[in-house]
Nucleic acid binder design. Structure first.
Lengths: 225, 225
DNA sequence: GTGGGTGGTTAAGAGTCGGTTAAGGTAGTG
DNA sequence: CACTACCTTAACCGACTCTTAACCACCCAC
């Protein structure tokens, strides 16, 4: 699922945006001031960061600058009121990827968010754990350099596990991530896990896909932790 | 249910906030001075702590600092009057997660509390007492660095004990926390406590799981308290 | 001493969970 | 239409887990 960070001091606006994005299947995190936003952006992965220019404490441009200096390449979409547009527009060269003038259409916002996320994934999107690599762009998975063949659903299972590795993912969360709201009945997940094991672990000596009894699964090499 | 600790010397304000939060289904605990607040925060589990900066006895920033030094990672929301705004920046270096300038809207407060609680649940979470560590994300428990194997129910028992350590938890509260409303008959809890002891204490010289006769159990090293 | 309450220990049956396999159905493709 | 790939479902088995009941040990009041 796509994850977006909203840094905005107008809580009503933030809430509206967040609710709309959630409807589109985009998960949102929220900070009401610059420092909190910066810390969140540093500490977590986001597909896109939504940044208000005018913020209490630490303004959007400074946040942007600081993130870029650290090598953080998360796409940033600036939001600005019309009357602040003039003097700030040159500052957009600071590493901002796009901007939007308030008030804006939510539909337009989502379109740009998705475009930004897509653009980034066109650059380099690689999930990795141990000798297991998933290239979301090229859409292939390798273990130890050797390509693996995965069906679409199994792919999604592995992707969510990789995004959390080496943490555990509960069965509920896994089903939610793979199927969304319309879950399959029965034991579909069990079968896909089985197939995933067959593809990822069976040909190799060390197993990466661990079962956490009574809870879920984790991608983790046996003797770690 | 979500639990929030309010540390605030203005009783009227605290009361107003507490009543509003209760309406939203958030359970509140309350301290009117810094020391009481610090002790409550140390001894109990909270989803979020609401901290006034200006407090008699022990100010909010010091409380925040002390909690962080102990490894307590409960999200902290600072409340500050407008004329103390400068302190805010300082607060963020102490480990504050968000702040709010008085007077504030109750609606905004609840929104931020919920955001903080949601965020925490998505990131690293470690429960610790003595040499016992429970990583809720990786979903493993270690004592003295050595991994322990726990069944799901025993896990839940240990988790609630850890959240309250080193305070005692009554048998009723423990059953409530583990089974919710549908309690098992008979002496199921006794058996799980026994199994928990076998896993956590048996291989080690000092016992952590203490029985409080006539009341319940506590996680606490023998000679403490 | 006796009896009842409390807590610790053990074992057994019922039930659940995870792994595995196979069958049926659907969609896409040539 | 035939073929393939894939997903869901059902069924089965072994392992594990939970509950339950029974027994034991202890403390305390009577």
């Amino acid at each position: 699922m796509m994850k977006v960070l909203i840094v905005e001091d107008d809580i009503d606006l933030a809430k509206t945006v967040a609710e709309y994005l959630e409807l589109e299947g985009i998960s949102c995190d929220y900070a009401s001031n610059g420092l909190a936003g910066l810390n969140l952006a540093k500490g977590n992965y986001f597909d896109v960061i939504l940044l208000d220019i005018n913020l209490p404490g630490l303004d959007g441009l400074s946040i942007c600058q600081q993130l870029r200096e650290e090598g953080n390449d998360t796409p940033i979409l600036m939001m600005t009121a019309l009357d602040q547009l003039d003097d700030k527009i040159e500052g957009f060269q600071m590493g901002t990827d796009d901007y939007l003038v308030k008030p804006f259409e939510l539909k337009e916002l989502t379109a740009r968010i998705k475009a930004l996320a897509r653009r980034r994934s066109g650059q380099a999107q690689l999930l990795r754990y141990n000798d297991l690599e998933m290239d979301l762009n090229a859409r292939n998975v390798t273990r130890g350099g050797q390509a693996l063949k995965l069906s679409p659903t199994v792919w999604r299972v592995l992707e969510t596990l990789l995004r959390h590795a080496p943490n555990a993912v509960s069965k509920d969360a896994l089903e939610q991530a793979v199927w969304g709201d319309e879950l399959p009945g029965s034991n579909s997940l069990k079968v896909h896990i089985f197939n995933l094991r067959k593809a990822v672990d069976a040909p190799y000596s060390i197993a990466l896909l661990q079962t956490i009894p009574g809870h879920g699964f984790a991608l983790r090499s046996e003797h770690e932790n």
